[in-house]
């Protein structure tokens, strides 16, 4: 075998090994896609797929938006949206008549969700939400063990008693992310979560406890339906998002705690 052949074989081996490593874990990955939702089935059958480009974002003037904590306006809704999400019992950030929906699937135990809550959500609230372009239904996608489900149920019970005092709900919501520890650690045990809830002004922890006892099964079924809707849309982790334009019945997904610029460009591309 010549020296050149050996070198070629060597290069091929190295490339194959590295590609194999990357490939073995890339199963199920998808690019950012823009889809048209099939409202008849409620699923996001892709009838036209297109990769959103960054051109819109880069064309926009660079603005500095603060990521300091902000308490957004919230509302309760009861309809099933054009994207097939039942909003009954779901806390929704923003105005009811916002132009677009940003469905936000999260898990209170997920560190990446905490990243989004700290870095990107305040910016979205200060811009697209406050200007009436977006409303954000806070959907649940418990996927880090049974404590995640407990947190999802607790969240819905807190919302039931605070929908007239949404600031109290938001304080509870941010407290859970602030207190987040390692997944399924002591911090996420029900007794500790109730203790944390006791420390949030405007939330009755005993009532939350009773609500969880009485309504757990019904809430778990509702949350499971939310998670399935996300999975049907191709989402496979948290945090995950779908920006949906009800007028045009178009949507685009974003997965992971992407920076504000990515959300901004996706929203603008749907508004065009």
């Amino acid at each position: 075998m010549s020296r050149q052949t050996r070198r070629a074989l060597l290069r091929g081996t190295a490339v194959t090994a590295i590609a194999g490593l990357a490939g073995c874990s890339a199963t199920g990955s998808t690019g950012s896609t823009e889809t048209v939702a099939n409202t008849d089935t409620g699923s996001s059958e892709s009838t036209a797929t297109e990769r959103p480009t960054e051109s819109t974002a880069t064309a926009e003037p660079t603005t500095t938006v603060s990521s300091k904590p902000v308490t957004p306006a919230m509302h309760a809704a009861s309809e099933t949206t054009g994207f097939g999400v039942d909003l009954a019992g779901v806390p929704v950030v923003g105005d009811a008549d916002a132009t677009l929906d940003l469905y936000y699937w999260s898990d209170y135990q997920c560190p990446f969700c905490q990243k989004f809550e700290h870095r990107t959500l305040p910016k979205l609230v200060r811009t697209h939400v406050s200007e009436g372009r977006l409303r954000i239904p806070l959907l649940q996608f418990p996927n880090i063990g049974k404590n995640s489900t407990t947190l999802s149920v607790m969240s819905r019970c807190v919302w039931r008693q605070t929908r007239e005092n949404t600031e109290a709900f938001w304080n509870w919501h941010t407290t859970m992310f602030e207190e987040q520890g390692f997944p399924n650690g002591d911090w996420s045990k029900r007794s500790n979560l109730l203790e944390l809830t006791r420390g949030v002004e405007g939330v009755d922890a005993d009532a939350v406890d009773a609500c969880m006892e009485e309504n757990r099964d019904a809430i778990v079924s509702k949350v499971e339906a939310e998670r399935k809707r996300g999975q049907n849309a191709g989402l496979d982790g948290t945090p995950s998002f779908v920006v949906y334009d009800p007028e045009a019945d178009r949507s685009a997904d974003l997965q992971g705690a992407q920076p504000y610029s990515r959300f901004d460009s996706t929203v603008r591309s749907l508004l065009e």
Binding site: I18, A26, R262
Partner: peptide
């Protein structure tokens, strides 16, 4: 390898970010 392993922990996120 380390970079690839870390990026592969959330492939869809990585693909979307790098695609942008």
């Amino acid at each position: 390898t380390f970079v690839l392993l870390i990026l592969s922990t959330f492939p869809t996120y990585t693909m979307q970010m790098l695609g942008a």
